[in-house]
């Protein structure tokens, strides 16, 4: 069975990495760690895309004499821009974390929820 599916190993590796990132995002309470988890997920998706563009015996898509087979350049273009956009959005997320830390004094999800609950409770008792 393993021989039949050997050509799918690249997808499975990407999925395994994706799931590690996904687990960090949903199970861990620290906001910075959640962002790292999102990054792991993101890179896994990039690997998935690039591995689809690979052709056996192909070379990098730069035109040259006597080269017949090139790997597919389209995923490369998409992922190239996605990486830079990814770091820009990561910076935005980190800015939000800094702002949250300034307002709440913590970057743990559970403590933030507790502070919010306490604030709600205060309002209720005041009314």
């Amino acid at each position: 069975m393993f021989e039949i599916h050997a050509g799918l190993f690249n997808y499975w590796a990407a999925i395994a990495l994706m799931m590690v990132g996904f687990y960090i995002v949903i199970a861990q309470g620290n906001l910075i760690k959640k962002i790292v988890g999102l990054n792991i997920f993101q890179v896994a998706v990039f690997v998935f895309y690039i591995s689809m563009g690979k052709i056996d015996g192909g070379t990098a898509p730069i035109l040259g004499e006597g080269i017949k087979v090139y790997s597919n350049p389209l995923p490369h273009v998409l992922i190239l821009t996605a990486i830079v956009v990814g770091v820009a959005t990561t910076a935005l997320a980190l800015a939000l974390v800094v702002r949250i830390n300034r307002s709440y004094g913590t970057i743990e999800e559970r403590e933030i929820i507790e502070i919010n609950h306490a604030a709600d409770h205060d309002e209720d008792t005041r009314l």
Binding site: V43, V47, G58, A60, S71, H76, L80, V84
Partner: peptide, 18 residues
């Protein structure tokens, strides 16, 4: 991994950015 899979431009970006 990107270099292995022929995506030299992407590898370059990932090394600089990531």
């Amino acid at each position: 991994l990107y270099v292995v899979m022929d995506a030299v431009d992407v590898a370059f970006t990932e090394a600089a950015v990531g």
